[in-house]
Simulated scan of single mutants.
Amino acid sequence: MVDAEFLGPWGRFVLIGAGAAAVLVFLLIIACFLTPGCIGYECVRKRRSICENVESQGRDSPNSINGTFESIETASTLPKDDPLKDFPTELTMSLQYLPASAENVTGKLVIGIEAVSNLPQKQYNCTLEPYVAVNIVKQSWSNRNPEKLHSFRTRGVRHTASPIYRETFVVADVKPQEVKEWAVDVTAYDHDRYANHTELCTLRVPLKEVKKLLTSPEIHLLNYKMKRSSKEFGNILLGISYLPTAQRLTINVARLANVKFAPTVPTLNDFNPYVRILMLNGKTGRKMKKKKTKFLRAAAQPEFNETLTFDLTFAQLETIQFLVAVWSKNIIAEENSSEQHSDSEESINSYKKSKDVCIGKVAIGKGARGATEKAHWFAVLQNPRKIVTVWHTLK
């Protein structure tokens, strides 16, 4: 016998034991994939969850266009928590009420904006240029929409997230009874030369809650924590792909949804949206290229389905960033609309163009601050020659 020659008199028992051990290992592996909590079961469940997410993205917005783009899972291990949330933005301001005297017939309210510390970062990799807007409103229990009485604005300070202003604003002819009904709205903005100014933080200070403001004429120095702005202006669906052989990046501007164009644009008839995409240097924030879609007239839910292409080397993908901004074309029709359809030279210029207004923006790229925006970019890099589509929030 072969067993006796090679394994001795116990060879048959050794082979039988090895076979039984192999069967036992096979059964344990199957049980691992079927028993909740085991590694195999969790891997299968995670894979199934990813497939279901991709299928659901193919069926429903907001993460893909049905029948147009191939959906790619954009989940990422990037942290979604903003580390700056541990360090709140603080405002240092001063308030002083000077009552009526022999020299001043009426009282004066003096508001001082001293400094702001730890402002949030820009959406894309570029330095801030913050300024502060101060509005005095009349707030009452019966009036949910406060009436704006006075407005002021500080200068902008470049290249800092903790600007120092030390500016004062004076409201004359104020009675103590009026001050008790007032509130001071303080809003920090970032001046953006490429798109709309971004609201960073807000704060409301009811003057009736400031102790000894009306009883003591001295300067009251106050520190407040400002609330991070959550203002949004709608959503935009973008499909991005990169072709390594052609060294070309394509951005498909699909459509917009839930665009909040008011009060920037007064009515829907005046809302003529188009999308402008700027390619920016990731280190300096300077504009390198710009392209835009056609504009649509009076479209509440505009669909563009336009593809804009940018020539990029693979090395540039590490530093380049894109600023996608939604604009409204400001077109004013002439009074004589009958001449608009004629072939005369005047009819060609029948629409007078004025400065367009920006509704909202989103930044895409490795230097983008948002977790969704950064995850979208990494998904494009990890899936060359495939179009990754994601809904983004305009801010």
Rank of each mutant, 00 (worst) to 15 (best):
197 H>Y: 02
112 G>Q: 11
79 P>K: 05
238 L>I: 10
230 S>T: 04
164 I>K: 10
71 S>L: 03
321 Q>V: 08
349 N>F: 11
373 E>M: 09
17 G>R: 13
127 T>H: 06
10 W>Q: 12
52 E>N: 06
100 A>K: 15
123 Q>A: 12
32 C>H: 04
285 G>R: 09
224 Y>H: 04
185 D>W: 01
238 L>N: 01
81 D>Y: 06
181 E>C: 06
33 F>N: 12
51 C>T: 05
133 A>Y: 11
30 I>W: 06
242 Y>V: 02
42 E>C: 07
6 F>E: 09
129 E>K: 13
51 C>N: 05
347 S>C: 11
124 Y>G: 11
75 A>P: 04
301 Q>H: 14
345 E>W: 13
150 H>K: 13
26 F>E: 13
114 E>V: 13
286 R>V: 09
242 Y>Q: 07
192 D>G: 06
302 P>G: 03
388 V>R: 01
369 R>E: 14
167 E>G: 07
340 Q>V: 11
391 W>D: 10
54 V>W: 09
178 E>M: 10
109 L>E: 01
333 A>R: 11
350 S>H: 07
37 G>D: 08
177 Q>N: 14
70 E>G: 10
181 E>R: 03
314 F>I: 09
313 T>Q: 13
152 F>R: 00
280 L>E: 01
29 I>Q: 04
32 C>E: 05
125 N>P: 02
30 I>L: 10
291 K>R: 13
92 T>N: 07
185 D>P: 00
111 I>G: 00
175 K>C: 03
372 T>Q: 10
132 V>P: 00
134 V>G: 00
230 S>N: 05
197 H>A: 05
214 L>N: 01
324 V>I: 15
324 V>Q: 12
164 I>W: 08
372 T>Y: 11
276 R>F: 09
114 E>G: 06
83 P>F: 03
114 E>S: 12
186 V>I: 12
93 M>P: 09
91 L>E: 00
150 H>L: 04
358 C>H: 13
379 A>H: 01
221 L>W: 11
352 K>H: 11
232 E>T: 15
263 P>Y: 07
5 E>H: 12
10 W>I: 10
275 V>C: 03
10 W>H: 09
108 K>M: 12
375 A>T: 07
152 F>G: 01
128 L>S: 03
31 A>P: 02
261 F>T: 01
204 R>C: 09
195 A>V: 07
185 D>R: 02
200 L>P: 04
303 E>L: 08
153 R>C: 03
91 L>F: 01
